[in-house]
């Protein structure tokens, strides 16, 4: 084969490089995400229910959030009626994080000019709220919400 050896050798090198992360992490124990659901706000709820069922939220929260965004920003529909007919204002800050923020552990809401020497581009500026971070850090999917949106008022101080 014309230049066959070289091709095969480069293919092997390519495959090796490509799979480094896999081999690097092989055999290491990787603890799953630990989602804290016992925030003070949740404990006070009589009916510990999110806007939809946990199963639904786990699978579809990103789609739901996208829908919320479209409806609230583009169609002026600022209230969500869930599958049980209950109404919720569409707001990350006042609806989602009212329950899911862990008051004490929340991070600084604003990036500080001194600490953001690298400048800021598209990746999220803020640390996500702990609740989001607990899964998103694990799966290395950075939500971009927090480069603009805030945690609830108490937390932002």
């Amino acid at each position: 084969m014309y230049k066959g050896g070289k091709i095969i050798a480069s293919l092997i090198i390519f495959a090796a490089l490509f799979t480094i992360p896999f081999f690097y992490n092989m055999g290491k124990v990787n603890a799953g995400p630990d989602v804290a659901l016992d925030t003070p706000a949740i404990q006070q709820l009589s009916d510990k229910q999110c806007v939809e069922s946990p199963e639904f939220m786990r699978a579809n929260h990103m789609k739901l959030l996208n829908q919320w965004r479209e409806e609230a920003v583009r169609n002026g529909q600022t209230v969500y009626i869930n599958s049980q007919g209950k109404e919720y204002p569409i707001s990350l800050q006042d609806t989602c994080l009212k329950c899911h923020a862990n008051g004490s552990a929340s991070k600084v809401a604003l990036s500080n000019p001194a600490s953001s020497t690298t400048g800021v581009s598209n990746p999220a500026i803020n640390e996500s709220p702990e609740f989001c971070a607990s899964c998103h850090d694990y799966s290395a999917v950075k939500p971009k919400c927090w480069s603009c949106h805030f945690e609830p008022k108490e937390a932002a101080k």
């Binding site: 953001s116 500026i125 480069s147 949106h149 008022k153």
Partner: peptide
Amino acid sequence: FKDPRPFIEEVSTEYPTRTPG
């Protein structure tokens, strides 16, 4: 043109900030 957050003197949590660009 730049990240606005460091240039906001007093933050209002009533409205989000913007992302650069």
